[in-house]
Nucleic acid binder design. Structure first.
Lengths: 237, 237
DNA sequence: CCGTCACGATAACAGCATTCTCAAAATCTG
DNA sequence: CAGATTTTGAGAATGCTGTTATCGTGACGG
């Protein structure tokens, strides 16, 4: 193994080298792919359970294990604990959300339109799914609750997890500011965080807090934009 | 017991009746006071534990029991479970917050000033307490998390608990709308819920989400008002 | 003085996350 | 292919927590 490697490493410009590299890569990959496969099965099981569970119901590690057709033993070999599984799920949910948003944004032309699109679409994604099962980008109540635990007890991890979404919004905002569509007063501050938390938690809780359940959600997204864009004070516009 | 009661209930206009009534009343009161005393001790113990615990640490029923100098037996006699204790704590936190806000509001003259005051002061109250221990009106992280459980899994209870705060804000808003200071577009909707959740969660999480920790909190409240009042879009003002 | 009732102390039980054990299976190495 | 090594599965064991049940005691009214 070693001698062959050294020999190839020096001069081989042709097949042998590549073959070996490929082989090595493949063998490494094989091991890694197996691992990733198992990890992925746990993640999939987690998402399925999140999607199928009734509101607020948190799954059990045992359920994930059963659902994934693997063993507790394996679970704790790949995850340091339930916390890490949830973190991984949350991470993927955010990432997926950011990707889908980016796709949506690509359809808009002006910076302000993109910003509007971001707000409206993100709001829609955060609305609690009535029937259609939550996709990877739809933060189930359980994930929302976990989100809170992260934000309060593990701020580091929370910040990291939110990066994709924050970055996308910050870019969108920067463009809009440059285009003069958004006031630059907040420039260096955490507007992105403010907007995200505003949208996210409004979608999830606003109607419950007011006590006005089930309000027509068609116009809700537009009102969200009105709120974020122009606030509540009477404008001169 | 019974015959004496009936006799007195009919005609007794003098001392004996009063005495008995007083005695009964006193005994009833004494019993109730004792009960309320015990309940209150549990509540106090709960608040103390919430205030002294490090971020995100949830207390144990046993801790509450120990801290209150009573027994598990008593705890489950007065509370149906831990959930009810938390609910009671949450309820009192909201109620206390609403009261303090109302006091603050009384100092302002114009409807718009009152609204501004509401936003700024509520924001301050929701900011995570750095050192000064959380008072009854400062929703500790634990209560915030419980708030989420309520909002997702027990919407009825959540709505009820928020009533004092929502009512106060709605009144403040209505006055401002009537004065023409706030646009009435949202009139019948859940603006109150939107504003509350916006302030509450922005105070708690916005900086963490953006990753920009510890941002000067002096100007933060003002920016919150700017955000709520005029939004992010460039206004003609 | 007796009965009832509230209470405290404590054990018992159940659910869940996490760890441990042991043997079988898979994978790697030569 | 055979042996060594690692990975995996099945399930028991542990620890923490919420909740319930048991038992005895002390207070209080009649």
């Amino acid at each position: 193994m070693t001698s062959a490697d050294d020999a190839n490493a020096a001069a081989g410009p042709d097949a042998p080298v590549r073959r070996r590299d490929l082989a090595v890569a493949r063998s490494l990959d094989s091991a890694r792919v197996r691992s990733e496969g198992r990890v992925q099965r746990f993640l999939d099981a987690g998402f399925e359970l999140l999607a199928s569970a009734e509101s607020g119901r948190d799954f059990t590690v045992q359920e994930v294990v059963d659902r994934s057709g693997q063993s507790l033993r394996s679970f704790y070999q790949y995850f340091a604990g339930k916390h890490e599984l949830l973190l991984a799920l949350f991470d993927e949910a955010i990432r997926s959300t950011a990707e889908r948003l980016e796709d949506q944004l690509a359809k808009e032309r002006s910076p302000l339109d993109r910003l509007h699109c971001f707000v409206v679409e993100y709001y829609r994604m955060c609305l609690p799914a009535p029937k259609g099962r939550a996709s990877k980008s739809n933060p189930t109540p359980v994930l929302a609750e976990f989100c809170h635990q992260l934000l309060t007890a593990h701020q580091e991890e929370a910040s990291r997890a939110f990066v994709p979404l924050v970055a996308l919004l910050e870019k969108t905002l920067a463009d809009a500011v440059e285009a003069g569509a958004v006031r630059s007063s907040f420039a260096g501050e955490d507007v992105a965080g403010s907007i995200l938390s505003t949208i996210m938690f409004n979608a999830a809780y606003a109607s419950t807090i007011s006590g006005t359940e089930s309000h027509d959600n068609a116009s809700a997204a537009d009102e969200m934009w009105e709120f974020v864009a122009r606030g509540i004070v009477t404008g001169s516009k």
